[in-house]
């Protein structure tokens, strides 16, 4: 059963990793504007239309 202790520890670490990633995303402002990036990604790179 001692493997349970290890698994709980590992699962806790993984979960903590995701929580950290989420908090980082909040802090870096990814939730402040949820609309513009969706449009921005559709723009072409420097295509010239004259």
């Amino acid at each position: 059963m001692s493997v349970m202790y290890l698994m709980i520890f590992v699962s806790f670490l993984i979960a903590l990793g995701f929580l950290g990633a989420f908090l980082w995303a909040v802090k870096s402002g990814q939730f402040e504007d949820t609309y513009t990036p969706a449009i921005r990604i559709l723009f072409d790179d420097d295509e010239e239309i004259r």
Partner: peptide, 13 residues
């Protein structure tokens, strides 16, 4: 605005 997300995230976790 940043706070409710962080609080919600931690509470969910």
């Amino acid at each position: 605005q940043a706070k409710p997300y962080a609080k919600l995230g931690i509470a969910g976790f």
